[in-house]
Amino acid sequence: MSRLRVLAFGLLIAAAVLKGVAGLLLGLTVVLATELLILRLQLTDGQPGNTNLRWPWRRKKIRVPFPSYERIAGDLSWAHYSVRDFDHGLRRRLLRALEVRLSDGSGIDLAKQPDRARALLGEHAWSVLRPGEPARDDRGEPGYELRALDDVVRAIESLPSTTSAEKEHP
């Protein structure tokens, strides 16, 4: 690449000396065309037939060994932006965890026994999760802070589990 640049600048100087202003314009055109060619080759990994551009500022896609973890982390990070992002992401996961924990630990069906589930879960967590209500689509209303989400997770974790129920009733 540097040889191509040296040659182009050499032609620019020679054209300017031999032809004056017209030569200078021709030489600048050659230099510009050379720089564009170099840029094009850099963006395509130096493969002239490659039509897939490689933008240097574009983030590389990293293969993650635990893609589900990445999705959960993404849902968690979006949960505070709006109630829509919370409802369509993390809330669904938390409701599923709540259903499993209630069913396995206490034999409570969340859909059929919401009053018992509400009493076990607590008002704060219930008001955040809003079981049985549709997901909201309002991006104007802010989501939940990490502390509130942590409280909800703690409330779900504090529910009786199968292992603790088996330990209490052998």
Rank of each mutant, 00 (worst) to 15 (best):
Q42R: 14
T44A: 02
V128Y: 03
F66K: 12
L12S: 06
R139W: 11
A73M: 08
E99I: 00
A73V: 04
E35M: 02
V100C: 00
L146V: 13
W78M: 15
E141L: 14
Y69S: 07
S68Y: 13
R92T: 01
A97D: 08
V152K: 03
L24P: 07
L90Q: 10
G107Q: 08
F9K: 03
P67I: 12
P131V: 01
L120E: 14
L149G: 12
V128K: 06
D104T: 05
R118F: 02
L36I: 01
P134D: 15
V83P: 09
P48G: 08
Y69N: 08
G27P: 10
T44N: 10
E70Q: 15
R63E: 14
A22I: 11
V128D: 04
W126R: 01
S127N: 10
I62Q: 15
R58C: 01
A155K: 08
D109I: 06
R71T: 14
I108L: 06
E145H: 11
F9N: 03
D138K: 05
P56V: 09
L4G: 04
L25N: 08
W126G: 03
N52I: 07
V83Q: 15
E99G: 07
T34R: 07
D75F: 15
I156E: 02
R139E: 15
T163I: 03
L12C: 10
A97K: 06
R101D: 03
A73R: 08
T34V: 12
V128Q: 03
R130Y: 02
D104K: 01
G122H: 00
P160F: 04
D45G: 15
S103L: 07
P65F: 06
K167P: 00
L90Y: 11
Y69G: 05
L76W: 15
R130L: 09
T51N: 09
A125D: 07
P56T: 10
Q42K: 13
L25V: 12
E157W: 06
S164T: 11
F86V: 09
D138W: 02
R59K: 14
E35V: 06
W55V: 06
R116D: 10
L94A: 11
W126T: 02
D75H: 15
G27N: 11
Q113G: 00
R96L: 07
I156G: 05
E99V: 01
D115E: 15
R139V: 14
L95M: 01
L37T: 04
H80R: 15
H88A: 04
K60G: 12
R101S: 07
A79H: 08
E168C: 03
A111C: 01
L98P: 02
T162A: 10
S68Q: 13
E145S: 07
R96S: 04
